[in-house]
Amino acid sequence: MSLVPADLKYTASHEWLRLEADGTVTVGITDHAQEALGDLVYIELPEVGAHFAADKELAVVESVKAAADVYAPLSGTVTAVNQDAADAPESVNRDAYAAWLFKMKPDNAADFAGLLEPAAYQASADA
């Protein structure tokens, strides 16, 4: 059974988001995603400062068995990337909610409210 913390928002494509006090969002992949992928061995992160429209591929996580795209959960500009996670991809397997991948400044702060609630994500991940 994978973990779905109650204080985060989610996407159907298995990203999690946390709204920070400064208005940026921190993004990672869910526990369900890391479990489905298996041992991660490579993470390709976006450039800081790059702008992405919602649902565009912006990062790649690769496990021993497969490569998976990570999508921009909302439109915005990348403000930070977690190089520690890229240097140690297994940290995402250990704790997918601690090993964040990147932070974004949303174009439109209201977009955050439209993301999936934990229960809705759980239901979509189980489907």
Partner: peptide
């Protein structure tokens, strides 16, 4: 079975 936890 593809793995029982960690493939590596």
């Amino acid at each position: 079975p593809v793995n029982y936890g960690s493939q590596i």
